[in-house]
Simulated assay, not measured.
Amino acid sequence: MTIRPATKTDAPQIAAIWNTVIRDTVITFNTVEKSDDEVGSLITQDTLVWEAAGQVMGFARFFPFRGGPGYRHTAEHTIMLHADARGRGGGKALLVALCDMARSKDIRMMIAGCSAECPAAIGFHAACGFETVATMPEVGFKFGRWIDLVLMQKRL
């Protein structure tokens, strides 16, 4: 298992993972698939991939939680894994590395927004030290139904 900085050449594999999640799950409330070019533009120095046998098995990135200088020490993250990669420890390795990276960049608080219909995501974040701070009822809409968003945070 290798956790490394993402590069623009990873964009097609990251897009394939992301688009499967968009198409088939409520892990994200997004309904619009991402092009390889769009994903490439989102890959920054704050993006990591989990690679195994030359394949990207998952990715994680962090980004500003909200605009404005008062929020500069708070970030939100995205972490997504290939369906075959879940439960193999790579997600935890990605999140630990991402939080370490964020801490080194003076991020004090990491935010996770989890679909309430994904208890595995909530449990994963709790096991990684995140605490539930709010549930926002019916803020997501996907597959013809309203979905709650669970906000979690971890002090870095």
Rank of each mutant, 00 (worst) to 15 (best):
V56R: 02
I3G: 05
T28E: 09
T28G: 07
T7M: 06
R4P: 01
I17S: 00
D10Y: 13
I3Y: 03
A11R: 06
Q45P: 08
W50K: 01
V49W: 02
N30C: 13
I22V: 13
G54Y: 02
V21Y: 11
P12C: 08
T31H: 07
D24R: 14
V21Q: 03
L48Q: 01
T9P: 05
G54T: 01
A52K: 10
F29G: 02
Q55C: 14
D10V: 10
V49K: 01
M57L: 14
V21F: 05
K8S: 09
Q55V: 15
T28N: 04
A6D: 00
E51F: 01
I43K: 04
V26L: 11
G40C: 01
N19H: 05
T47M: 07
T9D: 15
T31D: 10
G58E: 12
I14T: 01
N19V: 01
A16L: 08
G58L: 08
E51K: 02
D24W: 14
W18R: 10
T47C: 12
T7E: 14
A16V: 09
A60G: 08
A52N: 12
P5D: 10
N30M: 13
I43H: 03
I14D: 05
R4C: 02
R4I: 02
G58D: 06
P12R: 10
Q55F: 14
T9E: 14
T44Y: 06
A6M: 03
E38Q: 13
S35F: 10
K8Q: 15
I3L: 05
L42V: 06
G40V: 05
V56E: 10
E38V: 03
I17Q: 04
T44C: 03
N30G: 12
M57V: 09
L48T: 04
T20N: 13
T20I: 11
D36F: 10
T20E: 15
D46G: 00
A53N: 09
T31K: 06
P12D: 07
P5T: 07
K34F: 14
W50M: 11
M57E: 15
S35E: 01
K8R: 15
V32I: 15
I43L: 13
T9S: 11
R4F: 02
E51H: 00
T47N: 00
N30L: 13
E33I: 03
N30A: 15
L42I: 07
K8N: 13
A15K: 03
E38R: 09
S35R: 07
T25C: 15
S35C: 01
A15P: 08
A16S: 09
V32S: 11
V21D: 01
S41H: 09
E33S: 10
S35Q: 10
V49A: 03
K8H: 11
F59S: 03
D37C: 08
W18F: 15
W50H: 04
A11I: 05
E33Y: 09
E38D: 04
T7C: 04
T25M: 14
S41G: 11
